[in-house]
Measured scan of single mutants.
Amino acid sequence: MDETGKELVLALYDYQEKSPREVTMKKGDILTLLNSTNKDWWKVEVNDRQGFVPAAYVKKL
């Protein structure tokens, strides 16, 4: 969790967005987890953008 109590995830792999609903991340990025109710796609925030990334590409910290 960060200082505001939000849950964080670590990008395990690079991911290039394939639609406007997704976000690009690089391996090693720390992202804010917004929603993990879907087992396949998690909603995150990175670089002031919100979108989805494959759940298998990130790990909760």
Rank of each mutant, 00 (worst) to 15 (best):
T4E: 12
L34P: 01
E3A: 14
A11L: 02
L34K: 05
L33T: 01
K26Q: 09
A11F: 01
D2P: 14
N35I: 07
E22H: 06
E17D: 05
T24F: 04
D40E: 12
V46D: 11
K27C: 07
G5Q: 13
D2Q: 14
N47S: 10
K26W: 11
V46G: 14
A55S: 13
V9A: 11
V46F: 15
E7C: 15
V44A: 01
L8G: 03
L61A: 05
L34H: 05
T32N: 07
V44M: 02
K60Q: 08
V46H: 15
N38T: 06
D2G: 14
T32Q: 11
L61H: 05
L10N: 03
M25T: 03
M25R: 00
D40P: 02
V44G: 00
R49M: 07
K43V: 14
Q50I: 14
R21Y: 13
W42T: 03
A55H: 03
N38Y: 08
G28F: 04
Q50Y: 07
A56T: 11
S19D: 10
D48A: 11
E17F: 06
N38E: 10
N47H: 13
E7N: 10
F52L: 08
A11H: 00
D40R: 13
T4G: 14
P20G: 08
P20I: 09
M25E: 00
K18Y: 05
W42H: 02
E22V: 05
K26C: 11
A11C: 12
S19A: 08
R49T: 06
L31A: 07
N47F: 12
V23N: 03
E22K: 04
V46E: 03
K18L: 09
V58K: 00
L12N: 03
M25A: 02
Y13S: 08
L61M: 09
T24P: 05
K59R: 14
E7Y: 11
V9N: 01
R49G: 04
K59H: 09
G28K: 02
Q16A: 12
F52A: 03
V53F: 00
A56D: 08
D2V: 15
L33C: 07
L8H: 09
W41Q: 02
L8T: 08
Y57D: 02
A56N: 12
K39L: 09
I30C: 06
V44N: 01
L10A: 06
D29E: 11
Y15C: 02
R21S: 13
V9G: 12
S19I: 04
K26L: 08
K26T: 08
T37E: 14
A55C: 07
V9Q: 00
K18G: 08
E17R: 14
T37Q: 11
Y57M: 11
V58P: 01
G5V: 15
K18M: 11
V58N: 00
V9I: 07
N38S: 09
V9E: 00
K60H: 08
R49K: 10
L31F: 07
D2L: 14
S36E: 13
R21D: 11
R21W: 15
A56P: 08
N35G: 06
W41A: 02
V53T: 02
M25I: 15
D40T: 14
M25F: 10
W41N: 01
V53W: 00
L33R: 01
T4F: 12
A56H: 11
L31K: 01
E7K: 09
K18R: 14
T24K: 04
L10V: 15
V44C: 05
K60G: 05
V46I: 15
L31H: 03
K43S: 07
L8S: 07
Y15E: 00
N47D: 14
I30K: 05
K60N: 06
K18Q: 14
E7D: 10
D29H: 05
L33A: 02
K27N: 05
M25S: 00
V46N: 15
Q50K: 11
N38G: 09
E45M: 12
D48I: 05
K60M: 10
L31W: 03
K59W: 09
T32Y: 12
D2I: 14
T37P: 03
E22I: 04
R21H: 12
E22W: 04
K26E: 05
V23H: 03
N35K: 07
P54Q: 02
G51Q: 01
K59D: 06
G51C: 03
W42A: 04
L61F: 09
W41C: 06
T32R: 13
L34R: 04
E22C: 07
D48H: 12
L34T: 04
S36I: 06
A56M: 12
D14V: 02
E3S: 13
N38V: 05
I30H: 04
V46W: 08
F52C: 11
M1C: 15
Q16S: 11
K18C: 11
T32A: 10
D40W: 15
K43M: 15
S36L: 05
K59Y: 10
E45C: 12
K59N: 05
K39W: 08
L61N: 03
L34V: 12
E22P: 05
K60Y: 09
L34N: 02
S36V: 07
T32C: 10
Y57W: 06
E3H: 14
K43A: 08
F52W: 15
L34A: 03
N35S: 12
K27V: 07
Y13K: 12
A11I: 02
D14L: 02
Q50C: 10
S36G: 11
W42C: 04
D48N: 14
D40V: 15
L33K: 01
Y15T: 01
N35F: 06
V23K: 01
K18W: 04
P20N: 10
A55L: 02
L31V: 06
I30R: 05
K43P: 00
K26H: 09
A56Q: 11
T32V: 15
D14Q: 04
K26D: 03
K43R: 10
L10Q: 10
V44K: 00
A11M: 02
L10I: 15
K39S: 11
N35A: 08
K27F: 05
L12K: 05
N38R: 08
T4K: 12
S19Q: 08
W42D: 00
T24E: 03
G28A: 03
W42M: 03
K6S: 09
V23I: 15
M25C: 06
F52N: 03
K39E: 10
F52I: 06
L12W: 04
S19P: 04
D29I: 04
W42L: 04
D14S: 08
R21T: 13
P54Y: 03
V53Y: 00
P20L: 09
L31N: 01
S19F: 06
V53I: 08
L12I: 10
T4A: 13
R21A: 12
N38C: 09
E3V: 14
